[in-house]
Design a protein around this nucleic acid. Sequence first.
DNA 1: CTCATTTCTTACTTTTTTGTTAGTATCATA
DNA 2: TATGATACTAACAAAAAAGTAAGAAATGAG
Lengths: 120, 120
Amino acid sequence: MRKTSSTNTINKKQLEANCGIAYTNSVLSGRWKLSILAFLLDEKKLRYSELRNRLIGISERMLIAKLKELQADDLINRISYPEVPPRVEYELSEKGLSLKNILRQMADWGTKNATNIRTF
Amino acid sequence: MRKTSSTNTINKKQLEANCGIAYTNSVLSGRWKLSILAFLLDEKKLRYSELRNRLIGISERMLIAKLKELQADDLINRISYPEVPPRVEYELSEKGLSLKNILRQMADWGTKNATNIRTF
DNA sequence: CTCATTTCTTACTTTTTTGTTAGTATCATA
DNA sequence: TATGATACTAACAAAAAAGTAAGAAATGAG
């Protein structure tokens, strides 16, 4: 019988699970993305400036950068109206919406477990 | 009627949700933690060296650092056996185990949605 | 006495992420 | 002609995360 702890015993399923989680992580990680997605989940559609107002402390540079990354990963849609002054709205894409349960559970878990001094 | 997009309309629930998600993020973010937790979820208990073998590419410095942070956040337990050479095992704590659903869903979502060239 | 094993530690460097500040384009309105 | 509003952009700086490389403690085996 093979030692269950041997390197060879790392099975396919496990590696795939880890692979999957690594992708999810790569798409969600960082200081802002989860919050952006959470706000969009709650409010369906938000203008750039509305997002900026909600994400307290974010710089424009970061907000734009993260919105672009989320678009590139197809988690959000950008809707631009040809007006002056410009109006741009963001919403979750279908793929982004499929994160709903995960986002909600992360919010719940955090609320339940935040043992911290500071309030986020 | 108040404009639903005004800053004042950001309700308590929303802020709390964001607060919760921010805590969860702070505890899980980074390149390695989710993978560490996922392996521990699958295999219950792993020695330091077993983790090192599974987390391909991680440096000892990072592994130790992340294990310490996870301990500090009470997501894992460290079990040390007084032997020579030393033996130390890590396992999910109760709090860490309470992330089970989230971890599994992140793994599933990732497997389903990874559109990437590279394999993680 | 030397070596091997295992779990770390320390000093240092590189890379990645985030922040700061200033500025652009558009055009309706004053 | 100047101003204001909105959604960005660009150059640069700081901070945080991750990586590299060397080594330390403890002790049984040879």
